[in-house]
Design a protein around this nucleic acid. Sequence first.
DNA 1: CTGATTGCAAAGAATTTGCACTGCT
DNA 2: AGCAGTGCAAATTCTTTGCAATCAG
Lengths: 162, 162
Amino acid sequence: MTPRPRPDRRALLDELTSRGVRITAQRRALIAVIQDANRHLDAASLLQLARGRVPGTNRATVYRTIELLKRFGLIDELDLMHLDGEKHYYEASARRDHFHLACFGCGRIEEFTSPAFEQVKADISSQAGFEIRVIRLEAGGLCSMCAGSAETSRRRETPKKD
Amino acid sequence: MTPRPRPDRRALLDELTSRGVRITAQRRALIAVIQDANRHLDAASLLQLARGRVPGTNRATVYRTIELLKRFGLIDELDLMHLDGEKHYYEASARRDHFHLACFGCGRIEEFTSPAFEQVKADISSQAGFEIRVIRLEAGGLCSMCAGSAETSRRRETPKKD
DNA sequence: CTGATTGCAAAGAATTTGCACTGCT
DNA sequence: AGCAGTGCAAATTCTTTGCAATCAG
């Protein structure tokens, strides 16, 4: 597993144009939103934020762009243990390898890395001869804070809107 | 992480009754179906197979039973890289720890174990202080057969534009 | 120019819910 | 008996699609 450097926004756009993909205002907005995000965004949030930059952007365009970026390996899709419905979350993919710990107590998502994870990937390649294209590791449970206090079972709620 | 022995059907039922859960014909059928399964089943297959044992079993009951078994940690939910839609797949959870490799070429699901995976879990506990309740590792890519032959790996080449 | 991309509206897939009835324990 | 569990149908949530209009290269 060769760790790729994290590409900046330009690199992402360049990557697309160099592959002959047309850059529209909507796609530019969505890429910007994803790269500027400090949290994991679902399709609805992506839509809302993209509309802040390009009003009138449509839901379908968001899904089509997600599909596009996934195909080019530029974003990763997460489930985050379905802590809040069955939607998916997205993040720019070329970051340092990490995975997510979703707390059932407070709803917080923690990022985590472990050298052993690299070893797992190496094992998959060498032992199973499996050529990994995407890999996803997620855990659900109680974060250190919630595990400490026995009675922290209030789920965090998220406002819903289209 | 102590590897648990694989419980037989009786143990699963006993586990439920001992926890005060009522055993209905539908639940019995669903548990039997899950334990006898030699493949990963989605809700629709579960429904169909359960109806073979208890005709008239309803879709809602399947989902409610899945929810129940998940809550009791008796089954695990898988996505299998969404190789075929967004549905979920289920398997009895108390088997030897393993994870799944989903081949984009032939669609086959391979099971895999690695001691390094145990190490990852240990790291999560000791370093993050995170109390794991469920953990899911899935990889998508090309299995050894599909990676070998350039033919089979139709999805390996540069993704097409949208 | 011209085919790729978009918006729109409607459809689709997977799952959930309210309610009256049924059947475990 | 009493309440957890079920069936039914409709509702919800998330995502996809067909088609005509639009726009990037």
